[in-house]
Amino acid sequence: MRHTIRALGWGIIILWVITLLLPITVGLSLLKLMEPNAIGFREQEISYSDGMFSLSAPFYINNTGHYDLSDINVTVSIRRKNKAISTFSTLLPDVPAGNITNSCYTLSLSLEEIVSKNLKLLTDDTDLDLNISAFFRVAYVIGIGISTSMKRSWTAPFYNLTVSPVSYNFSSQKLSLSVSFENHTYFTMNGTILLKIYNDRSELVGFTEMYLDIPANRSFHDVIEVTIDHFNITESGFVRIYLEDEKILEKEWNLSG
């Protein structure tokens, strides 16, 4: 019994030493991560292609600490005026102790998602509320989570999108529409837009397609001619504009005013 008691005593001492030393060494390891060149971001890329808005953020983690970093998870939640737009969550590769890991964090927002959640993002500049949280484990034992909120400005690709009828040519049966907008984003906005013209009985009376390629911070203004079904045209109706099959604008038109 005495040997058992003695063994238990030593076991308790050793376990207490491990229990107290582990957080101290983890803390020292984390201090190394706070050094200036431990975590760095490279040049970000924002782009639009095939109905997807993408933000690509390459970065590196230089783990000069004593323990591996594992289960690294970054979550970004985007909201506008308390309305959720999207949430992205990515599991990043582990960073062993003494190693540098290069990785890339990509946020992708589809046009379909923007149209369904908040159509105004396409036509209005606004501020977005971002909630960024990161979680990782040190030594596979202690988990650390950090989260913060920030505002980020959003610039609209079709700022002030306006469609208005100019005239109707009875002889050629062509309706002229003035279409204008400003691309306030940092990337080229390209894609096919489709204009559908409806009469006041909600009947489709004409449509046209055109390919857009508007560089960043440029405006677009053009008069588009649409061949109309002469027998069904009315004095007023509405026009729908689609981008990559997603409706981005619906507006009434009136030939008299």
Binding site: T19, L22, P23, F135, V141, I142, G143, I144, G145, I146, S147, T148, S149, M150
Partner: peptide, 11 residues
């Protein structure tokens, strides 16, 4: 402006 969480269940 940061919220920190420390998970020490194994410890």
């Amino acid at each position: 402006n940061f919220h920190f969480t420390l998970e020490i269940m194994p410890l």
